[in-house]
Simulated scan of single mutants.
Amino acid sequence: MILATCVAPLAAFACRFNVRDVGFVDLGSDPYRLYLYVGDSMPMAERESLQSISTATFYDSNVKPQLLPLAQARQSEARAFIPEDFTGGVPAAVLVSPDRKTTLSLPLAKSGVSVLQTAWEALEPIVDSPRRNAILEQVFDSYGVVMIVEGKDVAANTKVRSMVDAAVSETTSKLPGLEKEIQQPPVVAVISTEEMEAERAFLWSLGIREVKEAPRVAILYARGRMIGPVLDGERLNRESISAILDTIGLNCECGLDRKWMQGVMVPLKWDRDRKQQVAKQLGFNPESPEIRIEMSQILAKSGAGQGIHRSKIIGDTLDELLTGYRTKGLAPENPPKQNKKPFAESLEMNKPEASELMLSWVVVAGILILIAGGAIVLFARRRES
């Protein structure tokens, strides 16, 4: 027991989480804001009904609705997002991104129909849509999802699909070499041009707002987070896909900037059943305060990464990530091969860092002191008897 207690600090140096694990933990992410602007003359009963509809729609989600009469909106931080053509007649809804930099206007009412009849239909697609639901199921259960948003160019769509398939196959082949096992490999999902309108809010949250000629690729993982930027144009190549995809399986202390491990979540439901399923799959509860504290401490660390994947801190840009990937600083590794260098040279290259050496001496000294103390007490008792 004494030995276990003394050696415990050494084990603490090894991170038991990977980047995917970290992505399931919410460390204070800002929610999406949904502002429901109504006229000052709207009856109180209708206001309360609209507020109830929005509260029920976004319960257990990362979207926070707020109903605001026009006069109140003009006196709050929501004034910056009031639609230019809103005068207080027909209610309007505006979805604001977590960083408050982009907005999505949503039609809340139809001509000649009460807003209370159309509100459910207008608001629900923000967190509930067919392709998004299917894709998120795969995101939660697998290593990650490489999502192709198709363009009008059919030949380009086919080319990108082949490129993505090759990158996914390459990453899948590396799974046995990960420090922490991820059972389900990455998968590919496709959103066609015909599906884009129904997935408007989902795609908007990823920065995709319209159909383009060429396809784009976004990589999702963990708790519905996007890792890295949307890839298009010259940035859409196999190397970029592989570099971002491989990052998901890395040790959580691999030297990555926090941005890579806590990417923005898409609008989604995160109910009790989903929480329980994810906790069972991960082997830990991502909602636990203790886990959140541990994750926060990990992400707050600076300096080189720990474990097999030691590297310098990798910044928050794709170029910096690619630099680490090309030098194999972030690539998953298999167990090291036998060292064939001369013995003396091998000792020099594998010499432990000063901090690790000091900690080892402290632990050894502590064990020796405890053993000596125990021997003295035992000897004294025998003399007394």
Rank of each mutant, 00 (worst) to 15 (best):
S111R: 12
E195W: 01
M295N: 03
G255H: 08
W120F: 10
L10Y: 10
V377T: 15
D271F: 03
R216M: 15
K212F: 00
C15F: 02
D153K: 10
S288F: 02
K275P: 00
L321E: 04
V211K: 12
L70I: 14
A198C: 01
E290G: 03
M1E: 08
A198E: 08
V230A: 11
V7H: 02
I241M: 11
R131D: 10
V115N: 06
L299Q: 12
P65K: 11
P186K: 10
M42W: 05
G224Y: 07
N350W: 09
L95F: 07
P107V: 09
V154Y: 03
I308A: 14
V264N: 11
G374K: 07
W260K: 07
E348I: 14
A365R: 01
T57R: 04
L299S: 10
S240H: 05
G374V: 00
V139K: 10
P185C: 03
W120R: 13
N334F: 13
N339I: 14
A304K: 14
E181F: 00
I182M: 14
L359E: 10
L256N: 05
D141G: 02
I227D: 02
C254Y: 01
E384P: 00
R381P: 00
G329F: 04
I293Y: 04
G324W: 03
Q262E: 12
R326Y: 05
K337Q: 13
D316T: 05
K328S: 13
L321F: 02
